[in-house]
C-alpha cells in the first residue's frame, strides 16, 4: 500500500522544524450539492483566507457540515452525494482529475463532531497518519512527531505517562484533543472542524478554543459551530448559512454587530434556529 508518489511533504520541511507547511487559502465557486434528488447547497461562493479562522454558522440542517465535507471531498464517501462547482485549494481545483483524494485529505485535515479515536493506543492514534504517509523515517522521528502533535493539541501533559493505553479510554474532551493531534500529525495545510466542542464541557471547550487560536499561526482553519460566542471568540471571518444558501459572509465583528441581511440578524439574536 504505497502512497501517491506525488505527495512528498517532507521534501522541504526539516524534521525537527515546526511540522507545518505554510497555510493556504480556499476558494469555493458556485458549489451545489445534492443528496440523491434533494439539493442541500445552492450556489455557494466563499473565500477562506490563509491563516484565518473561518466559522460557519446557521441553523441545524442548513448544510454547514455538507459544505465542510466538500473541502476535503469526504462527500465522495457518501454514495448518494453529488457535488458540482469549483473549489480551489491554493489555486488548484480539488475536484479536477489530477487531484488524488488521499493526497488531498492529507493536506486538508478534519476533526469530526463526535470524537472518533481509533480503538488503538494513544500513541498509535497519532502515529498512524505520519506512518501511512511516510512522514517519519525512523522511530525517533515518529516519536518526535507524536509528541509535538500532542503538545500542540494541549494533551501531552495529561497522557505522557500512558501513551500505550487505548485512545478510547480518554475522556470525551481528551479524545477530541487526541483527534486534533491526530489531524495535526499529518502536517496538513488546512484543518476543518465540525462542531469540535459540541461534546465538551466549558473547560475543555476553552482549551480547544485556545488551541484553535494558536493553530491559526500555522494553519488555515474552518470551524462549524452552533455557539455564537465561540464563533465570535475564535474566528476572523464568519459565514452564515440558511436552508442551503450562503446568506452572508464577512469579518466576524461585522456579522455580529451590523449584519446586512435580516435573516442573519434574526439568527444571531436567536430568532431563527
Amino acid at each position: 500500500m504505497q502512497m501517491n508518489t506525488k505527495f512528498k511533504p517532507l521534501e522541504n520541511v526539516p524534521l525537527n522544524a515546526d511540522p507545518s507547511p505554510r497555510a493556504i487559502s480556499i476558494c469555493a465557486e458556485k458549489v451545489n450539492v445534492f443528496y440523491g434528488e434533494k439539493q442541500a447547497l445552492f450556489d455557494i461562493d466563499l473565500n477562506v483566507g490563509a491563516n484565518e479562522v473561518t466559522s460557519l454558522i446557521g441553523p441545524s440542517g442548513c448544510g454547514k457540515s455538507t459544505f465542510l465535507r466538500c473541502m476535503n471531498r469526504m462527500n465522495d464517501t457518501i454514495d448518494t452525494c453529488r457535488v458540482s462547482g469549483k473549489i480551489t485549494l491554493d489555486g488548484e481545483d480539488i475536484y479536477s482529475r489530477d487531484i488524488d483524494v488521499v493526497e488531498l485529505r492529507a493536506r486538508v485535515g478534519m476533526v469530526f463532531q463526535k470524537p472518533n479515536p481509533f480503538p488503538k493506543s494513544i500513541f498509535e492514534n497519532v502515529a498512524y497518519g505520519p506512518r501511512i504517509h511516510g512522514l517519519a523515517h525512523t522511530k525517533t522521528d515518529l516519536e518526535r512527531i507524536v509528541v509535538t502533535s500532542l503538545q500542540k493539541a494541549g494533551l501531552f501533559e495529561e497522557v505522557k505517562d500512558r501513551l500505550q493505553q487505548p485512545g478510547t479510554s480518554l475522556s470525551g474532551g481528551q479524545q477530541q484533543r487526541l483527534c486534533i493531534a491526530r489531524a495535526i500529525a499529518v502536517q496538513p495545510e488546512v484543518i476543518l472542524m465540525d462542531e469540535p466542542c459540541s461534546a465538551l464541557d466549558p473547560i475543555a471547550t476553552a482549551i480547544v478554543e485556545e488551541l484553535i487560536d494558536e493553530l491559526r499561526q500555522n494553519y488555515t482553519i474552518v470551524i462549524v459551530t452552533h455557539s455564537m460566542q465561540q464563533a465570535a471568540r475564535v474566528s476572523q471571518q464568519t459565514a452564515f448559512f440558511h436552508l442551503g444558501n450562503l446568506v452572508e459572509t464577512g469579518p466576524t465583528e461585522k456579522i455580529f454587530t451590523t449584519p446586512d441581511d435580516p435573516r442573519t440578524e434574526s439568527y444571531i439574536t436567536g430568532r431563527i434556529g
Binding site: M74, V102, R105, G109, N116, G129, H133, R182
Partner: peptide, 27 residues
C-alpha cells in the same frame, strides 16, 4: 464497525484499502 472509524481513517488520508485492512477488518 462504526462508520466514525471509517471517516477517521479516510479523514487523515488513508486509502480505502488501508482503512479496511488497518482499521475495519481488525475490528
Amino acid at each position: 464497525v462504526p462508520p466514525s472509524i471509517r471517516s477517521a481513517a479516510l479523514g487523515i488520508g488513508a486509502s480505502r484499502m488501508q482503512m479496511v485492512f488497518h482499521h475495519v477488518l481488525p475490528l
